[in-house]
C-alpha cells in the first residue's frame, strides 16, 4: 500500500469515528447558531449606535457571520478532542503505543484532523452557512473567483489551524493542563485572527501588528476574500502569504515535536 492510500484509509477511519458522535456535532451546531445570534445582536446594536461606519452593514454582517460559520477557534469537539486525547495518552503512557506505530505521529494526527474537519464542515459549517444566507440574508461571494479563492483560502486556513493545534498539543508534553492551553488559544484567536472583529475596526497600532501574525490566515484572509475586500492580485498575494504561514506553522510544530519526542525518550529511558 502506498502512503496516499494509507493516509486516505486513516482519514476515513477518523471520519467514521466522528460520525458516531453525531449528538456532539449537533449540539456544536446549536451552540454555534446561538453564539452567532448573540454576535448578530451585539453588532446590530453597535451599528445602530455608531455615528461613523467603518463598513456597510451588509459587508459587516456578512464578514462577522461567515466568521462564525468557519470559526477555527470554536469550542467544538473537533477542536478539543485531538488535544485532549493526546494529553490523556501522555498522562497514561499510551503515547508509547503511538510512537511504535509504523506511521509518523504527526502524520497520523493530521489525518485525524482531516476527519474532524470534514465532519465539522458537514455538520456545523455548511448548515450554519446556509442558514445565515437564508435567515439573515448575508451576501454570497460576488463572483466565481471570490468563491474559489475563498475555498482555497479555507483549506490553507485548515492547515494553519492544524499547525497551531499541533503546537498546543505539543505543549501538553510539558503540562497536563490541556484545557488551560486550549482556553488561552481560543481567546487569542478570537481577537488576533479577526474572527470576532474585522481588523478594519482595530486601532492603527494593533492592526499593524496583527497583519504580521500567522493568525490572520485562520479568519481575516478567507473572510476578506469572501466579502470581496481582497480581489485579483491582492487575493493571490494574500493566498501566498497564508500558505507561507501554513508552512512556517507546520515547521514550528515539527521542531517542537522533535524536542518533545526526545523528552519522552528521556522519561521512558
Amino acid at each position: 500500500m502506498n502512503l496516499m492510500q494509507r493516509l486516505y484509509g486513516l482519514a476515513w477511519i477518523s471520519i467514521r469515528e466522528r460520525l458516531h458522535f453525531r449528538f456532539d456535532f449537533f449540539m456544536t451546531l446549536i451552540s454555534n447558531l446561538m453564539f452567532s445570534a448573540l454576535f448578530y445582536m451585539v453588532w446590530r446594536a453597535i451599528y445602530t449606535y455608531s455615528d461613523v461606519h467603518v463598513m456597510s452593514w451588509q459587508v459587516l454582517i456578512t464578514y462577522v457571520m461567515m466568521g462564525q460559520a468557519i470559526n477555527f477557534s470554536r469550542w467544538s469537539p473537533a477542536d478539543r478532542a485531538p488535544v485532549y486525547s493526546a494529553s490523556t495518552r501522555i498522562r497514561t503512557g499510551d503515547i508509547a503505543l503511538d510512537l511504535v506505530r509504523p506511521i509518523d505521529f504527526q502524520l497520523r494526527r493530521f489525518t485525524e484532523a482531516i476527519g474532524f474537519f470534514s465532519v465539522e464542515m458537514l455538520w456545523v459549517n455548511i448548515p450554519s452557512f446556509l442558514l445565515f444566507i437564508i435567515v439573515l440574508g448575508i451576501t454570497p461571494p460576488k463572483d466565481i473567483f471570490s468563491a474559489i479563492g475563498f475555498l482555497i483560502s479555507l483549506l490553507i486556513a485548515f492547515i494553519v489551524s492544524f499547525g497551531l493545534n499541533s503546537i498546543v498539543m505539543m505543549i501538553s508534553f510539558w503540562t497536563t493542563n490541556a484545557q488551560g492551553a486550549q482556553i488561552a488559544k481560543k481567546a487569542i484567536l478570537d481577537i488576533l485572527s479577526g474572527t470576532l472583529i474585522p481588523f478594519d475596526f482595530f486601532p492603527a497600532a494593533l492592526k499593524a501588528v496583527v497583519v504580521h501574525l500567522p493568525f490572520q490566515g485562520m479568519a481575516y484572509i478567507p473572510l476578506s476574500i469572501y466579502t470581496g475586500k481582497l480581489t485579483g492580485m491582492a487575493m493571490v498575494q494574500a493566498l501566498f502569504e497564508q500558505l507561507g504561514w501554513a508552512i512556517v506553522m507546520l515547521m514550528i510544530s515539527r521542531l517542537i515535536w522533535m524536542q518533545a519526542s526526545k523528552r519522552i525518550t528521556i522519561y521512558g529511558g
Binding site: I171, T176, N177, A181, I183, A184, D190, I191, L196
Partner: peptide, 21 residues
C-alpha cells in the same frame, strides 16, 4: 506548577480577549 501557570494565563487571556473586544 506548570499546569497552574498555564491555567492562570488561560483565564487571563480569556478575559483580556473579551475586554479587547
Amino acid at each position: 506548577r506548570t499546569d497552574t501557570w498555564v491555567a492562570l494565563i488561560g483565564g487571563l487571556c480569556a478575559q483580556a480577549s473579551t475586554l479587547t473586544f
